[in-house]
Design a protein around this nucleic acid. Structure first.
Length: 278
DNA sequence: ATGACCAACTAGGTTGGA
């Protein structure tokens, strides 16, 4: 089973590119972020014609997540347990949740499409929201694993954190000043490892960015950032046989500023396509 | 070539992105 994550930066602008890639790359499950539309505006037909079902969580023109799959999706969950809210004038605990998390199960694998808040600036209320969002997400991943021991879980999406210095190649991001590289953000990201959710792509693809800003020739200069990840529980990580970052998808007409990240899983033990051993 | 931001909303200019 091939699982991918991609911040598409508007699905209405990118629908043909996304579906063409899904088919060409033989992807079974795609978690999308920044669809930038309401549920009823999502171009479902283009996906269905290519053989994919779609689950969508879009509330307005901002954010928005979805999952396309050519295998059945069950246990669809909008938002995760404990996900903080955010809105202008609503900084309290009763602030409404944004469209940033959607969970589905495919062939026994729990997959989340996640769009972590940007943070905007170190002293912006959005940064506090980002840190609380990451903390709640890692806590929920720990809870889920406790309640589903040994089950495969993947947190995929745009984490908006560059965990290591090598992941930050954009010179406009300055240590001590900029978002994405602050100690607080990196500590919040490191929490996932502490709850056994590890980056399953990095061991197979040690180099490379997943995002390049549209401005300042960032892509031709290869001044990008690695901020899109697939984090897997031990049972998920054990099944990963290959991974890649689809850098080619940053080229051509009207690309997203992010590229897909792909993970290939071995099929589970219920399949009969391997010999029985006695 | 991978080339000097882009998308949504709306109809001029703001908001948001990273």
């Amino acid at each position: 089973m091939r699982i991918a994550t991609w911040n598409v930066n508007s699905i209405r602008t990118r629908k043909q590119r996304v579906v063409d890639w899904l088919v060409a790359a033989d992807i079974d499950v795609l978690a999308m972020q920044e669809i930038k539309c309401k549920n009823e505006q999502f171009p479902i037909e283009v996906f269905e014609e290519a053989g994919y079902e779609v689950q969508i969580h879009g509330l307005n023109q901002w954010n928005g997540v979805a999952v396309a799959s050519r295998r059945p999706m069950t246990d669809v969950e909008v938002g995760f347990s404990g996900q903080p809210g955010f809105a202008k004038g609503h900084d309290g605990p009763d602030a409404p949740q944004e469209a940033r998390a959607l969970g589905v199960t495919v062939d026994g694998v729990r997959v989340w499409s996640l769009y972590i808040p940007n943070g905007r600036a170190l002293d912006d209320p959005h940064m506090d929201y980002k840190l609380r969002f990451l903390e709640a997400l890692s806590a929920d991943a720990e809870r889920w694993q406790r309640e589903n021991p040994g089950a495969p879980l993947a947190l995929t999406g745009d984490f908006n954190v560059a965990p290591t210095d090598a992941d930050m190649g954009d010179p406009s991001f300055v240590p001590g000043v900029s978002t994405h590289i602050s100690p607080a953000e990196r500590a919040a990201f490191a929490r996932f490892e502490q709850v056994a959710m590890t980056d399953v792509v990095r061991p197979l693809v040690p180099e490379g960015y997943t995002f390049w800003d549209y401005k300042q020739l960032r892509f031709p200069r290869d001044e990008g950032m690695r901020i899109d990840f697939v984090l897997g529980s031990p049972a998920f990580a054990d099944r990963v046989v290959d991974a890649r970052i689809e850098r080619e998808q940053r080229k051509g007409d009207a690309p997203s500023d992010h590229v897909p990240v792909v993970v290939e899983l071995s099929e589970d033990e219920d399949d009969d396509d391997r010999p029985m051993i006695f």
